[in-house]
Nucleic acid binder design. Sequence first.
RNA 1: GGCGGCAUAGCCAAGUGGCUAAGGCAGCGGUCUGCAAAACCGUUAUUCUCCGGUUCAAAUCCGGAUGCCGCCUCCA
Length: 491
Amino acid sequence: MPQKIFNTKNRKKEVFQPLQEGAVGMYVCGITAYDVCHVGHARAAVVFDVIFRHFKASGVNVTYVKNFTDIDDKIIDRANKEGVGIAEIAERYIKLHDEDMAALRVLTPSVTPRATRHMAEMIELISMLEEKGIAYAVDGDVFFSVKKFSAYGGLSGRNLDEMISGARVDINDKKHNPLDFVLWKKSKEGEPFWDSPWGQGRPGWHIECSAMSRRYLGDTFDIHGGGEDLIFPHHENEIAQSQAATGKPPARYWIHNGFVKINAEKMSKSLGNIFPIRDIIRQYHPEALRLFMIQSHYRSPVDYSDTSLKEARVALIRGYSALQLMKELMAKFDGQPAGGKLEPAGQAYADKLNDLKDKFNAALDDDFNTAQALGYVFEAARLINNVATAEKKMSATSKKKILEIAADTFDHFGNVLGVFQSDPDAFFREDRDIEVVKRGLDVARIEALISERKKAREEKDWNRADDIRKELALLHITLKDSAEQTSWSIE
RNA sequence: GGCGGCAUAGCCAAGUGGCUAAGGCAGCGGUCUGCAAAACCGUUAUUCUCCGGUUCAAAUCCGGAUGCCGCCUCCA
């Protein structure tokens, strides 16, 4: 099935034709390192991580570039407030970013360039624009003249006249046109600076991405991504700069992820509803946050709330329960001979699993439809449960073989979506640890009660046993009795 | 004001011209169980915000209405 991508540039789903067969170059705008990452960053990271993983799993040689903006007004502000250098601020938040990404099972991109290490490339690009008469320098600042680039507005679907009439008043009287944007900024007293043909200064935000994408992926590459808020002006300006300088459009496909809303409101500092990733994952297993993200299509807005994370957690538990069941059963069948022929009932399960795998891949080929793909994952989980618990008459050899196929299938699902990759026992342990801390539970007391109940059950004192269970239920603890032992989980 | 998006069950959420409208949560009935939990089986939208139109056929295309949201300013 050919890969399809919704291209923001043309506002429609298109068949993806890479520049070079079997290879993909993808650039995604990363963070500005001045604060901890929030749930919105998490979404963008997860969305493009799944795209990265899907290409890799499809055997494509993908070069994924995600930058760090490590020089910017906000970083300078923060550095000044704390009385430290900008490098220290950037370094700190990049490190925290990396920790958050690792927790979310986000793979490290192929290249993670930093703006401050690419000054030469930026200066080169600005010089090219200046030579062509598209950029103009005024008193140490350099601006891009939007009127000199006729395709300006092509990505965001605006035209210059509309924008000029609708533009807010810009007090910068150095600009020839209020829509012109800065390529190079003269540094103020005490600010960090780099030497350039226009004097000491620092780059504008937009030029960073143009320079770094060009450096690692060339003048034209396959995919450029980012949050939908970056369409205008950031990506519009990137296109203008790159295309005006090189004569070639920078990216062929533009992918933009939708926003995360908080309880149906826009997340913003003024509303005080910024949810940092590190705070969320103290409350919920990181995979629950990840699953929440991939439950929706990447272009739809998603609404983050306590309820939605709780639901994602329950769904996650459902998946891991199937994996745990599978693991237990596999252990039981350890001594069984491998290979052998599947009986017809077993063959039907195997066919169904292969079918689900095909559908899963097709869903991702169709504009990375993770929500649909996830539906097939849960269908596969049901099949596993079915084989494990319902198919009593099937031979152990057949069961073992199906479970092997199921394990491979789930391995593929997990690899692409970045969920269900942990050992199920480890997952349940981690999840329980988080819940215990969150609810302030006393594990020793819980286990003492469970021992007491065990004794009561042995003595067939069902009333006492049930009273203990009710007491634990008040703490949202659910007990599960098996032949060997009683395990507990937190609702 | 300009540009764009969304509206599918109690909730979350796929599906964009034709098979029974995925999947998860919650609910109900059953199997299992000392009773539960988990799991499994069955069930839960004759219908996709509303009104018109195109078509043999529409949740899906077109027009209109209503509601919600995003961008136009730093923003994932």
